[in-house]
Design a protein around this nucleic acid. Structure first.
Lengths: 150, 150
DNA sequence: ACTCCTTAGGATATCCATGTCCGATTATAT
DNA sequence: ATATAATCGGACATGGATATCCTAAGGAGT
């Protein structure tokens, strides 16, 4: 419901990176281990986030990924627009190509206000905030299976 | 966002059937034409809805599909529970297997109230209502491409 | 220079939702 | 009985998201 696996991985990874000391690159492998996610696949996702300007990457020793300057304030909406594509917030719930106030599907006027709530929530949450929440230890970024301790 | 193609087809088809005179079977081919949807695939979906008890089917001449007695009052939530599976309303937005008030992901407490709105909306809308809305002519059940007139 | 460690990126594999095809089955009309 | 018209159900095809593999390129330490 709502998010692709790719987006879920991306958000988890970005939050995790945001919890780490800024400027110190984080290894793809470490993120993958921590989130219990396939590392080769995660690498693709992180590389994409680099191209999109959210992350910086460094090769070689002491390499890794870190949030680009100023990107701690990035909202989830911005992230998802990158990972799900720009049409993310515009789709009709019934899948109609044309569905607006003028040409509405039968669910349109009930769906629009609900969608607004979803988008508002996504606009509201920033990586920084979410990272802080995780740092309190009250919230969990991934399932336990592997190593439960950080 | 939110619904699979299968669910979209199912909902569209059910609404369309609900707009037709009750007791008179509707042809799969007619529905597919009207909704501009692949008919062989739609047939599978309708057959499934039969097994699930929402529709009745009749073979041979004068055959087709019609809403089972009393199913006009079915909510979208009920439909989607059938087409998306029972976990539809229970998934964590970040994809965690375990995510509850007790073991929450960092989005959990912001997401839950929004999800409640979505589910409430889906519980609220019935096939009957949606069908009536379509019958006013103010709403559109499918894109135009094929035959615009009903 | 050399080695080691990391990301970059292309090629390939797998999985699943979606979509197609065809023959079997069932019901009606003549 | 036969022809016709529709669903039923299994097998198969396709495409895109997900996942893996391998080599190249780049940076740090010795």
């Amino acid at each position: 419901m709502v998010l692709s696996r790719t987006s879920q991985y991306a958000v988890q990874a970005l939050i995790y990176i945001a919890t780490q000391p800024p400027g110190e690159p984080v290894l793809n492998r470490d993120i993958a281990d921590r989130l219990n996610v396939p590392s080769a696949y995660l690498a693709k996702i992180l590389q994409n986030l680099c191209k999109q300007g959210l992350l910086d990457s460094f090769r070689g020793r002491l390499g890794g990924f870190c949030l680009r300057e100023g990107m701690h304030k990035t909202s989830l909406m911005q992230v998802l627009t990158l990972t799900e594509g720009p049409a993310f917030s515009k789709n009709c719930i019934l899948g109609l190509k044309e569905c607006s106030d003028a040409t509405a599907c039968p669910m349109h006027f009930k769906w629009v206000p609900v969608k607004k709530k979803i988008l508002a929530m996504l606009e509201d949450m920033t990586l920084e905030e979410l990272a802080k929440a995780v740092q309190t230890g009250k919230y969990r970024l991934a399932d336990l299976p592997t190593g439960a301790l950080a």
